[in-house]
Design a protein around this nucleic acid. Structure first.
Lengths: 139, 139
DNA sequence: ACCTTTATGCAACAGTGTTGCAAATATTAA
DNA sequence: TTAATATTTGCAACACTGTTGCATAAAGGT
């Protein structure tokens, strides 16, 4: 990302605010998918809990982040990569979640092959969630 | 399933109880993935809310259901198919969730191709979540 | 029928997600 | 720069989700 966070927000039609810059830089720092709870812990009292929900909502609506379905209590969010919001809006995401440390990372380099599905379904997007052990936690 | 719900429970090492039979038959009736909230609504006061959590926990531990990651508030659960708990325990699930009605169904007939992933990750299972419109809601 | 083990209901609680409103901040226009 | 407008924030209250301890009830084995 060659832009500053403020520019990045502006290019997505969002006002530059303290909360949004905090959340955006946190995503860039962590480079992994984060839940509301994790962000809330990382940000401490720098940003109100309810405001954080609203920041995430605005990020999702403007295509800065996408939801990552999770099998734990709460959903996670990940920064959209370049491929995500450009050209042919890229709706196929591959994520990896470690069974040990619980961290989820995006795998933008992994290509998701088309699968054959029943004709009765109109499939519009796909999300592949891989599980196992990350480099750090491999048994 | 040729067995009765009671036999099915027994074969999975669980006692036959009213709550478990209710939940199991509800899954069979609905033949789709259900959240705790949905089950709780369907069962009304036939089963206590906390007990329902414990029934789902026992079902998951004994391989009767598996979790389906969801991007809404709560996780869903789906009955494991024959393929799931037999032979080479089948950990690759494909689900379809309708963007309109929100229902999630298992697609056991869809085969999930192996994807190439970074060597640093030990992938043990995969979950593919397709989204779009079901036969009923297709625009 | 008795005994042991396990499941249930109830109640209380912590965490998660939502909303209304007043105050603060960002943007636009003058 | 200032004023006017639109948006965002913090706060507080609330509903929903998930967990736990404990007494009671039910299941399975003897």
């Amino acid at each position: 990302m060659t832009e500053t966070p403020a520019q990045y927000l502006h290019h997505h039609g969002l006002r530059k605010t303290l909360g949004r810059e905090l959340v955006l830089t946190t995503f860039l720092d962590q480079s992994r998918a984060l839940s509301h709870g994790e962000l809330n812990t990382l940000l401490g009292d720098q940003l109100n809990r309810a405001s954080l929900y609203r920041v995430l909502q605005s990020f999702e609506e403007s295509g800065i982040v996408h939801r990552v379905p999770d099998d734990e209590v709460s959903v996670k969010y990940a920064l959209c990569s370049g491929a995500c919001s450009s050209e042919q809006h890229h709706d196929n995401h591959v994520h990896f979640k470690c069974n040990h440390c619980g961290e989820t990372q995006c795998l933008p380099e992994v290509k998701l092959p088309k699968v054959k599905t029943p004709d009765s379904l109109k499939v519009e997007s796909a999300e592949l969630l891989l599980r196992g052990y990350c480099r750090h936690c491999a048994a």
